[in-house]
């Protein structure tokens, strides 16, 4: 509630009781003499607040806002870490838009990854959550088992494991061989490699599943009872009750997972050995950005790539919020 106390709310509070720690405290036992200067009074009101925020302010100006502005500036230069940056105007952005095949490739790979991994992961998460939510015995055990991969999934160890699983002589092919199927070399084949990463992402469906479970628990049971009495089938109940009431949670999960998928880096880096290969088929956008910035030290260009990523993520998010009006069901 604290945050809402401005404007009218602050006025209410002022009417209700003595205002706290504003510029002066009339009805309050004063321990220190009231400072008379304007600055002294301002300090007594706001000083402690700013003192507590000091570390955050240093971080915000020094490590977030400042660098963001500098990065915007660098994106219009040819900065390469060694020499002072030269202003090149829109050249970086023009190159991104018109003549950078690697940009196009990496954007394509990333969009493909987002468009397949996010819906599949969410579908899995929702399906399993719905099954678990029917009051099944052993729920904590299943939930723990499904959650574990989400917790481990981003570490290098798992990427290393994945690299082995889908290698030509890896575990997946050994299992396939027992059924007499000869599998390809998944990670070194340009049309399959991206799918190993999508599967890795689906494997981590546990955390959206937990959010779905929490959402499902919010749906009042009597709605289902009423629907059963009216003779609605389970299937119909799912589509008419569960799904609509869950749309806010689905929306939340979709936005979070999409942003996360755009930022994926480690698995692609490890599985492709940092190259994004074969034939750029796992060249995630962030991996390309890393290569440009820290492989070739084209830091001006990489800054432009970063801002393009921001714009794309912002557009995606804005688009989700715009379409949300048409499918997200808010009760109140």
């Amino acid at each position: 509630m604290g945050n809402k106390m401005t404007g009218p709310a602050a006025a209410n509070i002022a009417a209700a009781g003595p205002p706290r720690q504003k510029t002066h405290i009339p009805n309050h036992p004063q321990r220190k003499p009231q400072p008379t200067s304007w600055l002294g009074r301002a300090w007594q009101g706001s000083g402690p607040g700013y003192m507590f925020l000091l570390p955050w302010f240093i971080g915000f100006f020094g490590l977030t806002l400042g660098p963001a502005i500098v990065s915007l500036y660098l994106s219009f230069t040819d900065f390469d870490l060694l020499r002072a940056p030269n202003w090149v105007g829109m050249a970086n952005y023009v190159r991104i838009a018109t003549s950078d095949p690697k940009f196009a490739a990496s954007m394509g790979v990333t969009l493909f990854f987002v468009l397949f991994s996010v819906p599949l992961k969410l579908a899995f998460a929702l399906g399993v959550a719905v099954v678990l939510n029917r009051g099944i015995r052993g729920l904590p055990v299943y939930r723990a088992v499904f959650y574990l991969p989400s917790l481990l999934g981003t570490s290098v160890a798992i990427a290393v494991l994945w690299r082995q699983l889908f290698a030509s002589d890896g575990l997946v092919n050994s299992i396939l061989a027992e059924f007499g199927i000869e599998g390809p070399s998944w990670i070194s084949h340009p049309s399959y490699s991206i799918w190993t990463l999508i599967i890795l992402s689906i494997w981590q469906f546990g955390s959206p599943m937990i959010i779905f479970l929490a959402g499902l628990r919010q749906i009042p049971g009597d709605m289902y009872e009423a629907a059963s009495l009216d003779g609605a089938s389970k299937w119909r109940q799912f589509f008419k009750i569960t799904l609509p009431l869950l749309t806010p949670v689905i929306f939340f999960n979709a936005v979070v997972q999409t942003i996360d998928a755009f930022k994926a880096f480690t698995p692609a880096f490890i599985i492709s050995g940092g190259t994004g290969g074969p034939i750029n088929s796992t060249l995630f956008y962030t991996l390309y950005l890393y290569q440009e910035a820290f492989g070739f030290f084209r830091m001006g260009y990489a800054s432009a790539l970063a801002w393009v990523l921001v714009v794309i993520i912002a557009l995606f998010t804005a688009f989700s919020f715009l379409t949300a009006r048409f499918w997200v069901h808010y009760d109140d």
Partner: peptide
């Protein structure tokens, strides 16, 4: 608002700093 900013944007100037 800072929650929304991808770290890529601050990455390079931070590195230089």
């Amino acid at each position: 608002g800072t929650l929304m900013i991808p770290y890529h944007v601050t990455l390079i100037p931070q590195y230089v700093l």
